[in-house]
C-alpha cells in the first residue's frame, strides 16, 4: 500500500463488481485516491480499466460495492447523482464535444443548466476555463474547426469549468495524432500542478512515469499490482506487470 492512507481518500471505491452479460468485467476492485493524488491506471485492453473509471462517476453502475467521492456515497439511492457528478469531471477518449455548439458553448452549457449561472456569468467562467487550456482565442470555433488536441483541451475546459474535486480521464490521448498528444498532456500536467485529484486511464507511459504518484496495473478485471511509477516500471513484483510494461515500451 501507499503512504496516502493517512489522509481520508477523496475517491474511495471498494469491492466493485461489474458484469456485462456473461462477462465478469470487474472482479472486486478497490481503488482509493487521496486528495491531490494523480493515479494512472494501465493494463491491456479488456482489463476493465475504463469500466472501473466509469464506475467512479456511475456512468456504469457497479453490480455491487461502494463508491464514495468527496464524502458522497454515489450508490446511495438518496444521493442526487447529477449533483455529485458536478464534483467529478470526466474526459473521454473521443472528446464527445457537442458538434452544434462553439467551444465556449460547450464549456458554458453545464455552467448554465447545471450550476445555474446566468449566461453572462457562464461566459466569463467559460472564457477563463478556455484560457486555462490555452484556447481563449478559439472560443467561437466549432469542434470540427479545431484539431483533435484542441478539441480534447476544450473537453478538459468543459469539465474543469464546473470546478470539480476530481477529474477522470479515459484514454485522453489515444485518438490523437502523435504530434498533438503533448499539448493535452501539458494541460493535464498543469492541472496536476494546481493540485487537482486525477485518475487517468492511459497508455502514455512517459506521462505516467513523470507525473503519476501511483501507477495501478489492471488485468482481467482485477488490480494486479500498484505502486510508485519507478517501482512499476523499474522492478515490478508480478511477472504479468513486467510483461505488460515491457510490451508497451517495446
Amino acid at each position: 500500500m501507499t503512504t496516502t492512507t493517512r489522509v481520508a481518500p477523496l475517491i474511495d471505491a471498494r469491492g466493485l463488481h461489474k458484469h456485462f452479460g456473461p462477462l465478469h468485467v470487474l472482479k472486486g476492485v478497490d481503488l482509493m485516491v487521496a486528495p491531490r493524488e494523480l493515479v494512472v491506471v494501465i493494463g491491456p485492453s479488456g482489463s476493465g480499466k475504463s469500466t472501473l473509471l466509469r464506475c467512479l462517476n456511475l456512468l456504469e453502475t457497479p453490480d455491487s460495492g461502494s463508491v464514495v467521492v468527496d464524502g458522497i456515497d454515489l450508490m446511495d439511492p438518496r444521493t442526487d447523482i447529477n449533483l455529485a457528478r458536478q464534483r467529478i469531471g470526466m474526459v473521454f477518449q473521443s472528446f464527445n464535444l457537442y458538434p452544434t455548439m462553439s467551444a465556449l458553448g460547450n464549456v458554458t452549457l453545464a455552467l448554465r443548466h447545471v450550476a445555474g449561472k446566468s449566461a453572462a456569468e457562464a461566459d466569463v467562467l467559460g472564457m477563463a476555463a478556455l484560457a486555462r487550456v490555452g484556447l481563449a482565442d478559439r472560443a467561437g470555433h466549432r469542434p470540427h474547426q479545431l484539431s483533435g488536441g484542441q478539441q480534447q483541451r476544450v473537453a478538459i475546459a468543459r469539465a474543469v469549468a464546473l470546478e470539480p474535486r476530481a477529474m477522470l480521464f479515459d484514454e485522453p490521448t489515444s485518438s490523437l495524432d502523435p504530434e498533438l498528444v503533448g499539448s493535452v498532456l501539458a494541460v493535464m500536467r498543469e492541472l496536476r500542478a494546481d493540485g487537482m485529484t486525477m485518475v487517468v486511464v492511459s497508455h502514455e507511459m512517459g506521462f505516467a512515469r513523470a507525473a503519476a504518484d501511483r501507477v495501478v496495473f489492471m488485468e482481467d478485471g482485477a488490480i494486479v499490482e500498484q505502486g510508485p511509477p519507478d517501482a512499476i516500471f523499474g522492478d515490478a513484483t508480478h511477472s504479468r506487470t513486467r510483461a505488460f510494461v515491457g510490451q508497451i515500451r517495446a
Binding site: 456512468l59 467529478i88 470526466m90 473521454f92 457537442y98 452549457l109 468543459r158 464546473l162
Partner: peptide, 11 residues
C-alpha cells in the same frame, strides 16, 4: 458519447 458527456457534467 454525447449523452455520456452531458450526464458526466451533471445534466
Amino acid at each position: 458519447g454525447q449523452s455520456e458527456a452531458a450526464r458526466s457534467l451533471g445534466l
